[in-house]
Amino acid sequence: LKKVVALYDYMPMNANDLQLRKGDEYFILEESNLPWWRARDKNGQEGYIPSNYVTEAE
């Protein structure tokens, strides 16, 4: 899975979204639905995130 790091905080707009915290790492599960990607956080929560809020992890 592709790993990304959040560049900004993101508060979910609806139940399908995943909250982002700046500096945290996330795994990308699906990239087909631009600009929204399906992601999983370190706690196993899954949801959609804005792809322009993250960058690929080193």
Rank of each mutant, 00 (worst) to 15 (best):
N33E: 14
M11G: 05
P50I: 06
V5M: 08
D41I: 01
G47F: 03
E31C: 13
P35Q: 15
E25K: 07
V5Q: 05
V4G: 02
P12G: 06
Q45V: 13
E31H: 11
V4D: 00
G47L: 02
M13A: 11
E58R: 11
W37M: 09
L20E: 00
I49A: 02
W37S: 05
D24F: 09
W36R: 12
G44P: 00
I28G: 00
K22D: 02
L29A: 03
N16G: 15
A6W: 01
P35Y: 15
L29C: 05
L1D: 05
G44H: 05
D17S: 10
E25V: 15
M13I: 14
D24W: 14
A15S: 12
Q45S: 10
D41H: 03
A39M: 04
I49P: 00
N14I: 05
A15E: 12
A15T: 12
W37I: 13
N14K: 12
V54A: 03
N52R: 11
Y10A: 03
K42P: 05
E56K: 11
D41Q: 02
R21E: 06
G44K: 04
D17N: 11
L18I: 05
P12Q: 04
L29R: 03
W37K: 06
Y48V: 06
W36S: 07
G23M: 03
E46A: 05
V54F: 04
P12A: 06
L29N: 02
Y48S: 05
D41S: 08
E25G: 05
E31Y: 12
L34W: 15
N43D: 12
G23K: 03
I28M: 03
K42D: 05
G47E: 00
L1M: 11
V5W: 11
E46P: 02
E25I: 15
E31N: 10
W36G: 05
N16S: 12
Q19A: 14
I49Q: 00
W36D: 04
E56I: 13
K42S: 10
M13L: 14
R38V: 08
P35V: 15
R38T: 07
S51C: 12
Q19C: 10
N43S: 12
P35W: 15
L34A: 14
L1T: 07
G23W: 05
F27Y: 14
P35E: 15
I49G: 01
N16T: 14
W37Q: 06
P50K: 06
Y10N: 02
M13F: 09
D24R: 07
R40F: 06
E31Q: 12
A57V: 15
D41C: 04
E31T: 11
A6D: 00
E58N: 13
I49D: 00
V5C: 06
Q45E: 11
W36F: 15
D9N: 10
N16A: 11
N16W: 14
N33V: 10
N16D: 13
G44N: 06
N43E: 12
D17F: 15
I28P: 01
E46G: 02
E56V: 13
R21N: 10
M13K: 12
P12H: 03
G47I: 02
V5S: 04
Q45N: 15
K22W: 04
G23L: 03
A39G: 05
L20M: 08
E25L: 14
P50G: 03
V5G: 01
Y48M: 13
I28V: 09
L7D: 03
Y26F: 05
R21C: 11
L7K: 06
V54Y: 02
Q45L: 12
K22Y: 05
S32A: 09
W36C: 11
Q45W: 08
N14A: 11
R38F: 15
A57H: 10
S51M: 11
L18K: 00
E56T: 12
Y53A: 08
Q19M: 12
K42A: 11
F27G: 03
L29E: 03
W37P: 06
K42F: 08
M13C: 14
L34V: 09
T55A: 13
D9F: 03
T55H: 10
K2D: 02
P50S: 05
L1K: 06
Y48I: 07
N52P: 05
Q19W: 09
D41W: 01
I28Y: 01
V5E: 04
M11F: 14
Y8Q: 10
M11K: 12
N52T: 12
I28E: 00
A57Q: 11
E46H: 04
R38P: 06
Y48Q: 07
Q19H: 09
E30R: 06
N43I: 07
Y26W: 01
Y10S: 03
Y53V: 04
Y8G: 04
Y8W: 12
P50M: 09
K3L: 10
S51P: 06
E46I: 10
L20G: 01
M11H: 12
L7F: 04
D17H: 15
A57W: 13
D41N: 11
E58I: 14
Y53S: 06
N52Y: 11
W36V: 10
D24N: 08
L18Q: 00
P12F: 02
E25S: 11
K3G: 03
K2W: 07
Y10T: 03
Q45R: 14
G44V: 01
L20T: 02
L7V: 07
M11R: 09
E30C: 11
A57I: 15
D41G: 05
N16M: 11
K3C: 08
P35A: 15
N33S: 13
E56N: 12
K22F: 05
M13N: 11
L29P: 02
F27H: 07
G47W: 02
L29D: 02
D17I: 09
Y8V: 07
P35T: 15
S32E: 08
A39L: 07
R40K: 08
D41V: 01
W37F: 09
W36Y: 15
L7A: 04
E30W: 11
V4T: 03
I28Q: 02
I49T: 01
K3D: 01
E46F: 04
Y10G: 01
K22S: 07
S51F: 15
S32M: 08
N14Q: 10
A15G: 10
E56L: 14
E30Q: 09
S51A: 14
L34N: 15
R40H: 04
L29Q: 03
E46V: 09
V5F: 10
W37N: 03
S51D: 03
T55M: 13
L34K: 13
N33M: 11
L29K: 03
V5Y: 11
L1N: 07
I49W: 01
I49F: 06
G47N: 00
A6R: 00
G47T: 01
G44C: 06
S32G: 13
T55K: 13
T55L: 10
K22I: 07
A6T: 01
Y8H: 09
L1H: 09
I49E: 00
E58M: 13
M13G: 09
G44T: 02
R38E: 03
L1R: 07
Y48K: 06
F27L: 11
P12D: 02
M13P: 07
E46Q: 06
P35C: 15
N43K: 09
N52F: 11
V54H: 01
R38M: 10
P35H: 15
S32C: 12
P50C: 12
P12L: 02
L34D: 15
Q19R: 13
L20F: 02
Y53F: 11
A15V: 12
L34E: 15
Y48P: 02
R21Y: 13
A15C: 12
K3I: 13
Q45T: 12
P12R: 05
S32N: 12
M11P: 06
Q19Y: 08
I28L: 09
A15P: 14
N33A: 12
R38A: 05
M11W: 14
N33K: 12
R21I: 15
S51Y: 15
E56W: 15
Y48E: 04
E46D: 05
G47M: 02
Y53C: 09
P50V: 04
A6M: 01
L20S: 00
Q45I: 11
N52G: 11
D9Q: 03
G44Q: 05
Y26D: 00
Y53G: 05
E30Y: 09
D24M: 10
E25F: 15
R40S: 05
F27K: 04
D17P: 02
G23T: 02
P50R: 07
W37G: 02
A39C: 07
R21Q: 09
N16C: 15
W37H: 04
A39E: 01
G47A: 01
K2N: 04
W36K: 12
E25D: 06
A6C: 04
